[in-house]
Design a protein around this nucleic acid. Structure first.
Lengths: 125, 125
DNA sequence: TGACCATATTCCTGCTTAGGCATACAGGTA
DNA sequence: TACCTGTATGCCTAAGCAGGAATATGGTCA
């Protein structure tokens, strides 16, 4: 059942943080590293996990892999991502990630050939 | 983090079904067995799992253990249970469980000293 | 008291996972 | 071509979990 797959993705804190940050717009692996302050392997593996279950999509841009939420999520996924964001709003861990994203956004914008967030942050979906 | 614990509970189909049925009102183990058509050990273990993480509460009534959703759920739990019900509404597995619950309700009502559902089904929370 | 009932727990096995380290790969650049 | 950089993958270990079989527990009833 697809719903169970979604919850399997959501039952790890790192993945929750990835998804929460992604809700603000596409991002590449090295930026995730800075925002979550987590090693590359960890980020990359969790993204692979999410990818395999259809919770994220990605696109190569030179050396960079730019990840994003799926353009046409299922009803269940949409509902659960909305619920996650709702819960995350009150939670210090997620707040801190978003704060870092905002602080780093300008830096990302001009240092990143990958183009993620080059148009500025917070184009909420 | 409490949110992760919630998702850990939700990433198993049996537990999702238990919670979905529970949303209709308290129920004892043997009734879960009939509705889910699953062996006693399985039901009992998953209820223990949910209990340990605060997703359900229970009360002894003679030989029967009557389980229910917590009377004062956290914001996160409330949000996620609502989301689950929303997703479940469209899903045949959950629909079937609820159909069985409704069909069995009268039987439960008079054959159950445990009193669960003796006042009729569907007192939605 | 002893038998019985509903439920919980223990022990086992197989499977999945997180995390880290080392390494592989793919694209860009010189 | 060779090298650099960003990212992915393979291997390993420790931990957690689902499921089933057998057994234990605690309440009830005669």
């Amino acid at each position: 059942m697809q719903l169970v797959k979604i919850y399997e993705c959501l039952c790890d804190l790192t993945r929750l943080r990835l998804l929460n940050v992604l809700a603000q717009g596409p991002l590449c692996v090295c930026h995730f590293q800075e925002i979550l302050r987590a090693p590359q392997v960890k980020i990359s593996k969790h993204l692979a996990y999410l990818r395999a279950r259809g919770l994220v999509v990605y696109e190569r841009s030179g050396n960079w892999m730019v990840y994003d939420l799926p353009p046409k999520p299922t009803r269940d996924l949409r509902a659960n991502l909305a619920c996650l964001q709702d819960c995350a709003r009150e939670n210090p861990v997620f707040q801190r990630d978003l704060a870092r994203l905002i602080k780093l956004a300008p830096k990302f914008a001009d240092s990143s050939p990958c183009g993620c967030h080059s148009a500025g942050v917070a184009h909420s979906k």
